[in-house]
Design a protein around this nucleic acid. Structure first.
Length: 425
RNA sequence: GGAGAGGUGGCUGAGUGGUCGAAAGCGGCGGUCUUGAAAACCGUUGAGGGUGUGAGCCCUCCCAGGGUUCGAAUCCCUGCUUCUCCGCCA
C-alpha cells in the first residue's frame, strides 16, 4: 500500500502513474469519499471528546456525592449519535481501505514503460546457449524413469511430480548448494520457517486481499505459503528495528504451493509449472536510500547460482505492465532451456520499497535521531526456483545418449558422482 | 485432547468501573559533577491517526474482535496465545 497522505495530496499524479501499470483510478470517487471521511472524522472525534468531558464530570459529581441524574439526562442521546457517526465514518474508511489495498505499487522511474512481457527490457546476458550436434531432448524425455508424473497424478493430481533416485538427490543437492552459497558467500542468515501462514501475513506481503484465488487455503485463516517471502518478510511485521541492524539478510528453503488458477492449459508439459515446488528465497530489509543498490546486489546473488552452475541466462527488467502487484521494480532471471529453445523465468528479484513495510508496519529507528522512525524497504528474490533449476541442469547438461552430467559445483553434494544415467540410476 | 493460571509500554511489574496512556524499578536519551569514565543527582523517554501555515488542540490503542456502561486496562462473550500438570505423539 502507498502512503495514504500521498494519495490525498498527489491523487492525480498517482492516477497517472497507476495508468502506466494499466490500473485506472476513480479519482472523483476517492475525492468524494475522502472529503466525507474528513468531515465525519472531525465530527466523530469531537463527539468522542464531548463524551469524555461529560463522563469525567459525572465521575467528579458522583465522587462529591452530588445528584448525577441531570448530568445523565444530558448525555442521553450522545451514545446513539456517536454510534451513528462512527458507523458512517467506518463505511467511508472501509470503502477507501478497499480501494487503497487493491492498488498496486508505483513503478520506479527506471522501469521500462510497456504493457506486457513483450515490452520487458533485456539488461544483460550471461554466456551463450550451447550448440548441439544432436537433437536435444527436453527434461521430460531425459527424466524418463526418474521423473514420474503418472504416479503424482495417481497420488494427488495434475501439476505434481515424483522424483526418484539420483534425480531426487540432484534436486536436494541444488538446495544445499544454494543455501551454502548464500550463507557462506553472500552474508545471508539461514532460516527455517512455517509453511502455513495466517491471513495477516498474506496481507502484509500483498497476496491478500486481491489474490486469494492463487492460494491453497488449508482451513479457516490458514494458507499454504505461495513463496517463502510471506513467512520471511513478515518476521518484522509490527517491529521497530534499530538502524545498526540493517541491512538484514535472510535466506530460507521452502516448498511453495500455488493454485495456478489462471494458468490452465499453460505449461502443462513437464515440471515448469507445478502446484508444489521448492524454492530458495532471499529477503532483505534495508534503509530506503540503499534499496536500489540492494536490488542490484540481491539480483547478483541469484545470478551467481546460475553462473556457478554454468547455465546461460539473461536478465530482464520487467516493464510497468508486467510488474507484480507489490513491486516497484523487478529483474527476472531467465535461464536457457534447450528443450524449449527458449529463455524461461527462474528467478524474480524485486524491490518493494515501503509498499510491504507499510502494510505490515515494519520500521526502523534512526541511530542519530532516536525519535525518528521510518518504514523499511523490503526486497526479495528467488535464489533460485529449485524445480526449474533442476530441469535447466538436465536439459543443458545432456549428452547424445540422454545421460546428464552433474555440474561440477554439485558433485561434492552428490557423493562425487559425475553423471546421471536414467537407465541405471 | 483434558484441568488450571496468565497475556499491561524496550524489559520487570502495579493497577479490578471514573481526572489512567497507565505507578514504581530497570534500560535508553540529555544534563550536572569529573582530566576521562563510573557512581550519584536532575530532567526526559510508547505507537498510530485527525486537524492546523504554525505553536498547538483533539482522537484511538493496556493480546485480537465483539458486547455492557454516561464512563472499561478493569465487567461479559468469542478467538488467539503463553505457562504448569495429565493424556497422546514424530
Amino acid at each position: 500500500m502507498l502512503d495514504i497522505k500521498y494519495y490525498r495530496q498527489h491523487l492525480d499524479e498517482v492516477a497517472k502513474r497507476l495508468l502506466q501499470r494499466g490500473v485506472t483510478l476513480d479519482t472523483e470517487l476517492i475525492q468524494q469519499l475522502e472529503s466525507q471521511r474528513k468531515q465525519l472524522q472531525i465530527e466523530t472525534q469531537s463527539l468522542q471528546n464531548l463524551r469524555t468531558q461529560r463522563s469525567k464530570a459525572i465521575g467528579q459529581a458522583k465522587a462529591q456525592g452530588q445528584d448525577i441524574q441531570p448530568l445523565l439526562d444530558d448525555v442521553e442521546n450522545l451514545g446513539e449519535q456517536l454510534k451513528q457517526k462512527k458507523h458512517e465514518l467506518d463505511q467511508r474508511l472501509q470503502a477507501l481501505q478497499t480501494i487503497y489495498a487493491s492498488l498496486p505499487n508505483l513503478a520506479h522511474e527506471s522501469v521500462p514503460i510497456g504493457k506486457d512481457e513483450t515490452d520487458n527490457q533485456k539488461i544483460r546476458q550471461w554466456s551463450e546457449p550451447k550448440h548441439w550436434s544432436f537433437t536435444v531432448k527436453d527434461h521430460v524425455e531425459l527424466g524418463d524413469g526418474l521423473l514420474d508424473f503418472a504416479s503424482a497424478v495417481k497420488i494427488t493430481g495434475a501439476r505434481f511430480v515424483v522424483l526418484k533416485g539420483q534425480l531426487a538427490r540432484l534436486h536436494r543437492a541444488l538446495i544445499q548448494f544454494m543455501l551454502d552459497l548464500h550463507t557462506e558467500q553472500h552474508g545471508y542468515t539461514e532460516l527455517y520457517v512455517p509453511y502455513i501462514v495466517n491471513q495477516h501475513s498474506l496481507y502484509g506481503t500483498g497476496q491478500l486481499p486481491k489474490f486469494k484465488s492463487d492460494l491453497f487455503e488449508v482451513s479457516n485463516d490458514f494458507y499454504l505459503i505461495p513463496t517463502a517471502e510471506v513467512p520471511m518478510t513478515n518476521l518484522f511485521r509490527d517491529e521497530i528495528v534499530s538502524e545498526e541492524q540493517l541491512p538484514l539478510k535472510r535466506v530460507a528453503h521452502t516448498p511453495c504451493f500455488r493454485r495456478e488458477a489462471g494458468a490452465s492449459g499453460k505449461d502443462t508439459r513437464g515440471m515448469i509449472r507445478q502446484h508444489q515446488f521448492e524454492k530458495v528465497e532471499l529477503v532483505q530489509w534495508v534503509k530506503p536510500e540503499t534499496s536500489y543498490q540492494a536490488l542490484e546486489e540481491l539480483t547478483f546473488h541469484a545470478e551467481t547460482v546460475l553462473q556457478k552452475l554454468e547455465l546461460p541466462y539473461r536478465v530482464m527488467s520487467l516493464c510497468c505492465g508486467d510488474l507484480g502487484f507489490s513491486a516497484a521494480k523487478t529483474y527476472d532471471l531467465e535461464v536457457w532451456l534447450p528443450g524449449e529453445k527458449n529463455y524461461r523465468e527462474i528467478s524474480s528479484c524485486s524491490n518493494f520499497e515501503a509498499f510491504q513495510a507499510r502494510r505490515m508496519q515494519a520500521r526502523f529507528r534512526h541511530h542519530n535521531d532516536k525519535k525518528t522512525i521510518e518504514l523499511l524497504h523490503t526486497l526479495n528474490g528467488s535464489g533460485l526456483a529449485v524445480g526449474r533449476t533442476l530441469l535447466a541442469v538436465m536439459e543443458n547438461y545432456q549428452d547424445e545418449q540422454g545421460k546428464i552430467a552433474v555440474p561440477q559445483v554439485l558433485q561434492s553434494y552428490m557423493g562425487g558422482q559425475t553423471v546421471i544415467d536414467s537407465s541405471t540410476a
